[in-house]
């Protein structure tokens, strides 16, 4: 059937493909470490939306992250006071203060709103995406691996991302974020800073691809170890006041 040369070639291809996939996963894990370096955490975030160079609005969020892709977002700004969003894997719930009942929403509805809460609540790629390295490219002065990654779960905010990870250091530099129709929706740029002696992403700047004068800066104000008990991640618990503390 196959001669020895063909068999060796196929084996080499298989090994190469396996190591290639492993490289992407490793790179994503390394890049994640610059965004969230804790398993369970409270991340306080300030979102600033700019129209041109003018600050249009500011929003504050506290995000409580727990393993198994659990995130609880508490809206802190006066105009959004009382809103909460819960993400459990691919499932999402929203509570509005006017109604005070947990409402199941679709991943698509999660993308709508002032500042997409999906952008605030999700801080890792490695568990949700897989793909391939499609080349190397310079972003500014930084030589990057260009990764084309695809969501492995239906609940991801962006089903496809083209991610640029620094070749030297594996920190995230830039990302092109695509929505379900494979349209480029936003561009993300990551700014690193020194936080408690560690290099971490301190700001993610999102530029809307359709309205280029619109810019959203997501500032990570603090990341601290915090483990909420499992009840907090039950959708029925969302209407309780303990979450507001």
């Amino acid at each position: 059937m196959f001669n020895r040369k063909t068999a060796l070639f196929l084996a080499a291809l298989l090994v190469s493909a396996t190591s290639f996939a492993a490289d992407v996963k490793t790179l994503l894990k390394q890049a994640d470490e610059f965004r969230l370096n804790l398993e369970s955490a409270r991340v306080d975030t300030e979102v600033r939306v700019f129209k041109g160079e003018t600050l249009d609005k500011t929003r504050l969020y506290s995000v409580f992250i727990k393993p198994e892709r659990r995130s609880l977002v508490v809206f802190r700004s006066a105009v959004e006071r009382g809103q909460k969003m819960l993400m459990l894997g691919d499932d999402f719930w929203l509570v509005m203060p006017s109604s005070a009942r947990p409402l199941r929403i679709t991943p698509m509805q999660k993308l709508l709103g002032d500042a997409s809460t999906g952008d605030v609540a999700t801080l890792t790629w490695s568990g949700d995406y897989d793909g391939k390295i499609v080349g190397e490219e310079k972003v500014g002065d930084i030589v990057c691996y260009k990764l084309d990654i695809v969501g492995q779960r239906k609940g991801v905010s962006y089903p496809r991302i083209v991610l640029y990870v620094a070749k030297n250091g594996s920190f995230p530099v830039k990302a092109e974020l695509y929505v379900a129709s494979d349209k480029l929706a936003k561009m993300a740029e990551f700014k690193l800073g020194n936080v408690d002696g560690r290099k971490l992403v301190t700001t993610m700047t999102l530029t809307d691809h359709l309205q280029k004068d619109r810019r959203t800066e997501v500032h990570y104000l603090s990341r601290s170890a915090k483990t909420l008990s499992d009840e907090y991640y039950n959708p029925a618990f969302l209407v309780r006041a303990e979450i507001d503390n």
Binding site: D91, R104, I105, T106, P107, M108, Q109, A180
Partner: peptide
């Protein structure tokens, strides 16, 4: 009941 069978659709 409320169900999200796919990313765009919710039925209740």
């Amino acid at each position: 009941f409320s169900s999200v069978p796919e990313s765009s659709l919710e039925i209740h």
